[in-house]
């Protein structure tokens, strides 16, 4: 594998779903690439398509898909062209997933040990029961579970929410994946427990060679944890680049508006909002996706859709007036 090539390259990914009102454009042409050892934060409001993007990477898609085009290259191999059985193999080997609710990944009838062993057996069919247990113990300790040997024989309901999420993360890491997908992994947790899990992700990056895609609606969380940021809106990526750079110098009015909505001070006065609504998914997008809500909208914005353009090194934004309005 060429280390200079990005690990994941998504090109012009489009996904339409069938609805009563005609095709809904859930993803409207996603272009994204990232290398190894990165934590990529994907932020967006409801309806931005961020969860669907993850489903595409896993190729776990709902049945009402009308059209799926473009390519998702993983080390040069197009995931969308893999046979279902090959894709299944990739899911247990190279890609792992952590969901918002840990109980969706845990079967209440099996002990933690069974869960971890099954994952290991699938990934390393030759592994002995003893080695599996040893690796599981080591992994539980690594994800911050004390009394690992006791917890190994526990059932999911005997553990707290934070511990369950740690178990799910342990299951994902045991696979030694190249790509770890985390969809709002801390949203269901309490603040102090969320801090622990964020801390865990932060520590994991030390000896995790793969990349993490971290989906969140919480800009602050992404700002603290991630290397790269990808801002989604209405099924498109409107801005992407290194986190610090994008947040310090946003080049898309939507990113700017999102940042303004964050309230991190106790100044009085009115809170910022983004008036209007996300365009309907059935809209054909013959203009900039954000035109209907943008404070800087001009005629040029309504003439055809915008594309991502490089605005600084590694920093892209999909705004025709970026240089004018956000210098």
């Amino acid at each position: 594998m060429n280390p200079d090539l990005p690990m994941i390259t998504i090109r012009n990914l489009k996904l339409d779903a069938r609805t009563e009102h005609g095709p809904a454009h859930i993803l409207r042409g996603i272009d994204l690439e990232f290398g190894r050892g990165r934590i990529v934060g994907v932020v967006g409001e409801s309806g931005s398509g961020k969860s669907t993007l993850v489903s595409c990477l896993l190729r776990l898609l709902p049945s009402n898909i009308e059209r799926l085009e473009g390519e998702i290259l993983f080390d040069g191999i197009d995931l969308l062209k893999l046979s279902p059985s090959d894709m299944n193999d990739w899911r247990g080997r190279k890609i792992a997933m952590v969901f918002q609710d840990p109980m969706t990944a845990l079967n209440p009838l099996f002990t933690i040990n069974t869960h971890l062993r099954d994952v290991l057996k699938r990934r390393f069919p030759q592994i002995s029961a003893r080695e599996a247990r040893e690796r599981s113990l080591a992994m539980l300790t690594k994800v911050g579970i004390s009394d690992a040997s006791v917890r190994l024989d526990a059932y999911p309901h005997q553990l707290s929410g934070g511990m369950r999420q740690r178990i799910v993360i342990a299951m994902a890491l045991l696979v030694e994946p190249d790509l770890l997908l985390a969809d709002e992994p801390t949203t269901a947790l309490d603040a102090t427990v969320e801090a622990q899990i964020v801390d865990l992700f932060d520590q994991l990056r030390q000896d995790f060679s793969g990349s993490i895609v971290f989906i969140s609606h919480h800009l602050g969380l992404v700002a603290e944890l991630c290397d790269d940021l990808c801002v989604m809106y209405g099924g498109t990526i409107v801005e992407t680049g290194p986190v610090a750079e994008v947040l310090a110098r946003p080049r898309h009015p939507y990113t700017r508006a999102l940042l303004d909505c964050e309230i991190e001070d106790d100044h009085g006065g009115r809170l910022a909002t983004i008036p209007g609504e996300v365009p309907s998914a059935t809209w054909a997008m013959d203009a900039c996706i954000f035109a209907s809500r943008c404070a800087h909208v001009a005629d040029i914005c309504r003439r055809g859709p915008t594309v991502l353009e490089t605005v600084a090194i590694g920093h892209k934004a999909a705004c025709k007036r970026s240089r004018e309005v956000l210098p």
Partner: peptide, 19 residues
């Protein structure tokens, strides 16, 4: 533990043990 966007406003994170 309250995550903030602005690096200048971040506090030293105190991560509590347990739940």
């Amino acid at each position: 533990t309250n995550p903030v966007v602005d690096p200048g406003k971040r506090r030293v994170r105190i991560v509590l043990r347990g739940e």
